[in-house]
């Protein structure tokens, strides 16, 4: 009813994680992460220990949404790349396959040109992983397979327990 929920399986997650790590290395970046357009963090790699990735994910999605609103007002479909330059760190944000957002944080050890180049390559790889994932979700839905769904047997009691 509420459109297609985003579902992530182990197999695709590993592929995505490997691609993000490759990008991190090749672009000489500090942090690379992937966010759903609704603000859910999908995967992150790099120096994330002292980084509030949950908040960053939500703000990134808000940023992309606001920029998308501006694009619409100008008659553009979207602005697919955003770049924020700081004194120390920079953020490169790009939309992949109109659904997910790739964020690269880098400092003076890298450059905007290098990041752009590497992001472009990774975007293709990530795009095809996501098409594969969406296809898989559709097939599983179609076959009615929900054997290991965490929701199938949820009871009121389970939910009450959440609130202690």
């Amino acid at each position: 009813m509420l459109g297609s929920d985003l579902v992530m399986y182990d197999e695709e997650f590993k592929l995505i994680d490997a691609e993000l790590q490759r990008l991190l290395q090749q672009a000489n970046a500090k942090v690379v992460f992937l966010v759903d357009k609704n603000g859910q963090l999908i995967a992150a790699t790099g120096e994330t220990e002292n980084l509030d990735t949950t908040s960053l994910a939500s703000l990134t999605a808000g940023n992309i949404a606001a920029t998308g609103g501006m694009a619409k007002l100008l008659g553009e479909k979207e602005f697919s790349i955003l770049f924020h330059e700081g004194a120390r760190d920079n953020i490169h944000i790009s939309i992949i396959g109109q659904r997910v957002i790739l964020v690269v944080i880098f400092d003076q050890r890298s450059s905007l040109g290098l990041v752009r180049l590497r992001v472009k390559k990774s975007a293709e790889a990530l795009g095809s992983i996501f098409s594969q994932l969406l296809q898989k979700v559709e097939t599983e839905k179609g076959s009615g397979k929900s054997a290991d769904s965490p929701f199938a047997e949820i009871t009121d009691e389970d939910i009450d327990k959440l609130f202690g």
Partner: peptide
Amino acid sequence: MSFINYSS
């Protein structure tokens, strides 16, 4: 649109 992550 929820996000269900079977991996994590």
